[in-house]
Amino acid sequence: MESILSEIVAKYNYWIYVILMMIGFYAMIGKRNLVKKLLGMNIFQTAIILFYVSMGVKRGGGIPIVDKHEALLHGVNPAHIDNPVPHVLMLTAIVVSVSVTGVALAIMQRIYREYGTLEEDEILEKIER
């Protein structure tokens, strides 16, 4: 029990990522309202961003901007700077997630104009009629 607790505390950011991801996943699959589905998708993507960002961070690490002359003379100690690559990757992932959200919102507008509602059950009812 003790060891599980310390494991959770030591890697709390990864546990938060898992919980956030499950919340988002549930909203995408379980909710019947299209806006809630889209919000679930955003939570899901944010969880992945948290996951990537926390994998690059080190305890005692600084921002990865180094003085060129200093670095050339004495070299760089990798323990003192965070890994910038996952953070940069997430810039791209944020762009992707924003564009998907934008497209989804535009499509949702068309759905609303067509059926007058964003509840999946009501839409399906109208289609069957």
Binding site: L34, M108, I123
Partner: peptide, 8 residues
């Protein structure tokens, strides 16, 4: 549009 949303 609904099919496309499910695909998204």
């Amino acid at each position: 549009p609904l099919a496309s949303f499910n695909y998204i």
